[in-house]
Amino acid sequence: MPITAGTPLAADTPLFIVLNTGSGRHRGNEVEDSIRRVLDKAGRRYELFKVGSGSDLENAARQALQRARSEGGAVIAAGGDGTLNAVSNVVLGADVPFGILPQGTFNYFGRTYGISQDTETATRSLLDSVVEPVQVGQLNGHVFLVNASLGLYPDLLEDREAYKQRYGRSRWVALWSALVTLMRAHRQLNLQLDNGEQTRHLRTQTIVVGNNELQLEHIGIHEQTRLQQGQLVAMTARPLGTLALYGLVLRGLLSRMGEDEHVISFGFKHLRVNLSHRRRRVKVAMDGEIRWMQSPLEFRVAEQPLPLLVPRDDSLRERA
């Protein structure tokens, strides 16, 4: 039976939780202990599928989905952005409720829907939650919840992760790594963008496709209505030197990126991106995770929404 908006999660629904013990802010058994404490006290049936690395996430998510389907349960992802992405890729289209216990640095996806980054609070919210269908994007058939990109932006994310491994996870570390990365020379891309109605040629260092109102608001790209209309938002810029790139980052920190004369943004439901050079494989980032894909790149709004579990009581939703 298809899941509809506002469907409450029954009190006896078992929870099958994919827990990435190596992600985000996970410290020792702290996250696991918090989950067990809340669910044991509530008498809720659950099972943890613990993984220590991202390479094991898809298999664990498929096991959790199989159990949820056979026992009328829900699949829950506990971890950083990459964990939420990997599990949602498996759950999308399966007509199984999907919940999150976010552990990421910025947590744009969870904050957008009022889901706390505090594990105990988020776990308690699952016990009295309802389904909210949410839009997700796809790049060559792979889900992204917040954004997907190519060019300079994946380089920034790779360097940011290296800095976090060395200096710890914080927004200041993320900012410092970005400033260092932008000092290097970056290859410009010659792209052909086709949305089915119009073809445009663009020379740029990066293109980012967004699916999150909160992130757009925070950097100052005023295209939120596009998302509300069932579209994705493409963000790019004309080629920039190092100082101009620093200025762009500063505008983003001040929530004024959209005011930069070099920035281009537009909404779409489907966008085909062709690279003019002969390389068939291109490095992309989806929700902070790096992978290589074959070009051309096909960005689109997923046909089915993700049945996300959110707090039933609106007053319990945390405000971003």
Score class of each variant (00 low, 15 high):
Ser70Phe: 09
Gly137Ala: 05
Ala185Ser: 15
Arg184Ser: 01
Leu191Ala: 05
Val233Ala: 07
Glu217Ala: 15
Thr199His: 12
Ala94Tyr: 03
Ala122Cys: 02
Gly267Asn: 07
Arg203Ala: 03
Gln205Met: 02
Leu253Phe: 13
Leu193Pro: 13
Asp155Tyr: 09
Ala78Lys: 04
Ala237Val: 06
Arg203Thr: 08
Pro296Lys: 02
Val131Met: 09
Leu65Cys: 02
Leu248Asp: 12
Arg203Cys: 01
Ser34Thr: 13
Phe109Val: 00
Leu297Met: 04
Val180Trp: 13
Thr7Ile: 08
Ala74Val: 05
Leu309Trp: 09
Leu214Cys: 11
Gly28Glu: 01
Trp176Phe: 06
Asn107Ser: 02
Ile221Ala: 04
His222Leu: 08
Val273Ala: 03
Glu32Ser: 14
Met1Trp: 03
Val273Gln: 06
Phe144Lys: 07
Asn85Ile: 06
Ala74Cys: 07
Val310Gly: 07
Val282Ser: 12
Gly99Val: 00
Ala64Gln: 02
Val136His: 14
Thr236Ala: 12
Ser170Leu: 11
Ala5Val: 01
Pro154Cys: 05
Lys283Gly: 05
Ser170Arg: 08
Ser53Val: 13
His270Phe: 03
Arg166Met: 09
Arg44Lys: 01
Thr4Gln: 09
Asn190Lys: 08
Pro133Gln: 03
Asp159Thr: 03
Asp33Glu: 14
Met293Arg: 13
Gly28Arg: 06
Glu259Gln: 07
Lys164Cys: 03
Ser295Tyr: 09
Leu48Lys: 02
Val146Trp: 01
Arg226Ala: 15
Ala61Cys: 05
Thr13Asn: 05
His218Asp: 14
Met257Leu: 15
His201Asp: 04
His277Glu: 15
Met293Asp: 07
Val31Pro: 10
Ala234Tyr: 01
Glu298Gly: 05
Phe144Gly: 10
Asp81Leu: 06
Leu19Val: 00
Thr112Ala: 07
Tyr167Lys: 02
Gly114Lys: 14
Ser88Lys: 13
Pro14Trp: 03
Leu152His: 01
Arg44Glu: 15
Gly104Tyr: 04
Phe144Arg: 07
Ser276Gly: 12
Leu92Tyr: 12
Asp56Asn: 13
Leu297Asp: 04
Ser55Glu: 15
Gly99Glu: 05
Asp287Thr: 06
Thr83Ala: 10
Phe49Asn: 00
Leu65Met: 04
Ala68His: 07
Ala244Val: 07
Leu156Met: 00
Ser315Trp: 11
Leu126Trp: 08
Leu240Val: 04
Ser265Pro: 06
Val130Glu: 15
Gln294Met: 01
Asn29Lys: 06
Pro102Arg: 03
Leu309Thr: 02
Thr199Gln: 15
Asn20Lys: 01
Tyr246Asn: 10
Gln294Glu: 08
His270Asn: 00
Ser315Lys: 14
Ser70Asn: 14
Lys164His: 09
His186Gln: 00
Arg171Thr: 07
Gln198Ala: 09
Gln304Trp: 06
Tyr108Asn: 04
Leu139Arg: 08
Ser88Trp: 11
Leu248Lys: 14
Lys41Trp: 06
His262Phe: 07
Gly24Glu: 10
Tyr46Val: 00
Asp12Val: 05
Gly80Cys: 11
Asp81Lys: 13
Gly210Phe: 15
Asp287Pro: 14
